[in-house]
Amino acid sequence: MRHTISVLVENEFGVLSRVSGLFSGRGFNIESLSVAPTLDPSVSRMTIVTTGDDQVLEQITKHLNKLIDTIKVIDFTGTDYVERELALIKVNAEESLRAEVLRIADIFRSKVVDVGPRSYTLEVTGAPGKINAILELLRPFGIKEIVRTGPVVLGRGEKGGKG
């Protein structure tokens, strides 16, 4: 099962490798990982998407908590949360295709952030499902390059952690 885990960690060098080393050393999966400082510059928030059964997830959260640099671990699975991911998609846009690509971009409320003679670069945000959907629609035009941030999440309302 897919889990999205938010980890508040000390913003110090080497913390990312402690976390990634923990996952690789113990054979846990990382689907995506994003990290940046929070309001408190001494704290960073990592958002990790991982998969595993209940026992594996219990071990993952316990081991994350065990790291000295970990301040808080929140598994959002089964709770109410907002999830967003950003993708930049460079799609083939020959003269004849331009209008159609723009129409699809419009439906997904994505922006054209770069225009070339034969391509558009689109910026799209949303839950990973939405990004998969636009990719599916753009695929027939020929996608030249893509980059995704991996999802970030926050609990709705009062849920989640501070920072």
Partner: peptide, 14 residues
């Protein structure tokens, strides 16, 4: 050494 001993120490420092 911090890299080498990361998985075999409880914690380490540079």
């Amino acid at each position: 050494m911090v890299g080498i001993t990361r998985p075999i120490t409880k914690h380490n420092y540079l």
